[in-house]
Design a binder for these strands. Structure first.
Length: 710
RNA sequence: GGCGAGGUAGCUCAGUUGGUUAGAGCACAGGAUUCAUAACCCUGAGGUCCCGGGUUCAAAUCCCGGUCUCGCUACCA
């Protein structure tokens, strides 16, 4: 916040998009657009700034998706990385580098990072009770192990909990453990996992965030961090048993077959991207990550707060890097009355907008600026906001076109008509109070915009730019040069008044170009073209100047900056959105949050194994939500010979009232288990589709309850 | 369920440490104007500040309770 000691350099990051699909305008508005605006402003200030981003290409979701699509993980990331990169380019997001975490330099960087922390003793290892199934050739998650409970001697206890006595267990405690995958006794292969002991750093985080940044970080960011810190920080696993990701350094004992957990490797992607940029540009990357006089800012969405404010800073600090000076997280953007959702296909992808609007015949790059304008104007800086096509149209037609575009156009048209196509001189003697006031307003606009951008208030800053155009319209209206022009015969001094008015309007137009440049770069360029000035005048230091266009210079014939958007166009978009939407069965169907579930290609079983499972058809006779649990429904299922209570985690997908009477397939001989205090006697079979929606497995036509399934 | 952030005009949002009559832009209505993309300019109408209590001379603002939205987290055999 100290304005007298400017940072020597800036490092700006925008959240790494996960390369498993296309990104929508919510992502754009949340992180990339504000980051780009900030960076363009800094560049115009001639500050030393690097803007890095890249695709996040690891984690389990990508191999899972690859399996679903019948392809390889590599193919998935190779498909999406270039498209995402191009989308950003088309929308004017000006990364200095758009990198990817599959790049070798990233793997090296992440490994080095891990090694440094590990060698210093900043990571702890836990040789967790990992059993290994030799038949299945994989480590066994706790719940895939059964054995005798040490507490109550129940023979069917799971590795994480005994159903019988309810005691929480670790697999190590089980007597006679058996793998549920193969039925064999697992061997106790010591698998080591590395953890980042966040608990060691509570004092540091408390001081750094809750004291030092209590006032200059956004309330939602500080609040979220406080919530985490107060909740008690726990060691967080840094490694996983997986074959997709950054492998551990070779010399790490027991590191074979393990990769870095994606949350650990992804943010390091900012560093590796910076390194690659430095290589490409013959620069030194180190000061950007190590020098205290670098200002680091992370632009992210609110779902990313803990990683960028708690976890990554701890990593950076341990590794000897600088910490972010701010993390201006945005809230979310809704679309036409509903949350944006990939699974329900309720979204506007950047790609779609580009295809539908940024075509030469539609206005080309100018239409990229229109989206940039609206998204900034409704940026979810302090609370969730909403994109509507009507709002988009209004913002364009009545602000960009009518106020901003129209001012520039009428200034140029009038100049051509009344000043012979040349920039008229300013006659100091003929200036009045309004002229001086308007000039003062131009200078004031610069100060306001500057201050607001520095505070990450881009929405307000953009408003001030539009407001300067409004001031221009008011000024022109009061001056009425077109009226004066009619009386020139009787009033020869009138030309001086006309000259002054248009001189000031043209200088104001030049200022608009400078001020709008961080927000709408294509528009700024176009104004430069119309004014026949070089792009260099866009340097921020020229803002407030009254010498942007030279007297006597002849300018180009006027061209419109923006076109109107017709009702027809937005109706089409709304229809398109609704037509593509996947209908949800119940209210807030959760986003298919590609959970961290490993793809288990289960080992072959024999018929006897299958025969152990007792499957029967039953009918749901009642269903109710379980108190204090979002996902659980308590069901009464009629199995013909009895009615059972079954608790099932399907509340997010089905309305309790709507599923009564439905037939389902039930595993009837599953050991009872308590959930939220209710004993569940069985399990309902569900199928999960590609977008994470659940479907009942039931007979084609209703049959008797209790019918066996085989 | 726990925690965090929000709920202010039809829409998008401001409201600083409690202090005249709660503001802006858009949309809407009326007027004026014609240089300009039926654009601009002027004027106006519009609010139970989510609900209920409390503190205070004074509450959108502080406290308590409730409710709705979003996020994090727990429950998901």
């Amino acid at each position: 916040m100290s304005t007298n000691s400017l940072p020597k350099r800036y490092l700006i990051t925008a959240a790494l998009p996960y390369a498993n699909g296309l990104k929508h305008i919510g992502h754009l508005a949340g992180a990339y657009l504000p980051a780009d605006t900030y960076v363009r402003y800094l560049r115009a200030q001639k500050r030393d700034v690097v803007f890095v981003c890249g695709s996040d290409e690891h984690g389990t979701a990508i191999p899972i998706q690859a399996t679903k699509e019948g392809t390889t993980a590599q193919a998935i990331i190779d498909k999406y990385h270039p498209i995402i990169e191009q989308n950003f380019k088309d929308l004017g997001i000006s990364f200095d580098i758009y990198h990817r975490t599959s790049a070798p330099i990233h793997h090296e960087t992440a490994r080095e990072f891990f090694k440094t922390l590990n060698d210093k003793g900043d990571l702890i290892t836990k040789e967790s009770e990992q059993y290994f199934d030799e038949t299945a050739q994989s480590f066994l998650a706790d719940r895939y192990i059964k054995g005798t409970c040490p507490n109550c001697s129940h023979p069917g206890a799971y590795g994480d909990q005994c159903e019988s006595c309810g005691k929480s267990l670790s697999p190590d405690e089980l007597i006679n453990p058996v793998s549920t995958l193969s039925g064999n006794a697992p061997i106790k292969k010591l698998t080591k996992h590395w953890y980042l002991p966040l608990d060691r750093h509570e004092a540091f985080l408390r001081k750094w965030i809750l004291e030092e940044h209590a006032n200059d970080w956004r309330a939602t960011v500080v609040g979220q961090c406080k919530s985490w810190i107060d909740g008690g920080l726990l060691p967080r696993a840094v490694t996983r048993d997986l074959d997709w990701g950054v492998t551990l350094p070779d010399d790490v004992v027991d590191g074979k077959g393990k990769v870095l957990y994606v949350w650990f490797d992804a943010p390091i992607g900012y560093i590796s991207a910076t390194k690659q940029w430095a290589l490409d540009n013959e620069k030194d990357w180190k000061p950007y990550w190590e020098s205290k006089d670098t200002k680091l800012v992370h632009f992210i969405g609110k779902d990313n707060i803990v990683f960028h404010c708690i976890i990554f800073p701890v990593m950076l600090q341990l590794h000897g890097n600088i910490l972010p000076e701010n993390v201006p997280a945005n809230e979310f953007m809704n679309l036409e009355g509903d949350k944006m959702s990939t699974s329900r296909n309720w979204k506007l992808e950047m790609e779609d907008y580009i295809n539908d609007f940024i075509k030469p015949e539609n206005g080309g790059s100018q239409m990229a600026d229109v989206l940039r304008y609206y998204l900034t104007a409704i940026a979810p800086e302090s609370k969730d906001s909403e994109f509507t096509w009507k709002g988009f149209q209004d913002a364009n037609n009545s602000e960009l076109v009518s106020i901003f575009g129209n001012f520039v156009n009428r200034a140029l048209v009038l100049m051509h008509k009344l000043c012979k196509g040349k920039v008229p001189p300013l006659h100091a003697a003929a200036m009045d109070e309004l002229d001086h006031e308007t000039i003062a307003n131009i200078k004031a606009a610069k100060e306001k915009v500057e201050k607001l951008i520095e505070e990450y208030k881009f929405r307000d800053a953009l408003f001030e730019v539009i407001n300067l155009a409004r001031i221009g319209n008011q000024y022109m209206q009061k001056k009425e040069p077109w009226i004066i022009a009619k009386t020139l015969d009787t009033n020869p001094d009138g030309q001086q008044l006309i000259d002054n008015c248009l001189h000031i309007c043209l200088q104001l137009t030049g200022n608009l170009a400078i001020l709008i440049n961080p927000f709408l770069p294509f528009t700024a360029k176009k104004i430069c073209y119309l004014l026949k000035v070089v792009d260099r005048i866009l340097d921020w230091e020229n803002a407030g100047s009254l010498k942007l266009v030279s007297v006597g210079y002849s300018l180009r014939p006027p061209e419109l900056l923006f076109r109107k958007i017709e009702d027809e166009e937005i109706c089409k978009q709304v229809e398109k959105l609704k037509a593509a939407a996947v209908h949800k069965e119940v209210t807030p169907a959760v986003e298919a949050k590609q959970e961290e579930k490993a793809i288990t290609v289960k080992p072959e079983i024999v018929f006897d194994d299958f025969a152990k499972i007792d499957l029967k058809v039953g009918t749901i006779v009642s269903a109710e939500k379980v108190e204090k649990a979002d996902k659980l429904l308590k069901l009464q299922v009629d199995l013909g010979f009895e009615v059972r209570t079954i608790v099932s985690g399907i509340a997010m997908h089905f309305d309790p009232a709507a599923i009564v009477g439905k037939q389902v397939t039930v595993v009837t001989n599953l050991a009872p288990r308590k959930m939220r205090g209710i004993e569940s006697n069985g399990m309902i079979l569900m199928a999960e589709d590609a977008v994470g929606k659940l479907h009942f497995i039931n007979p084609e036509t209703a049959i008797d309850n209790g019918s066996g399934v085989s």
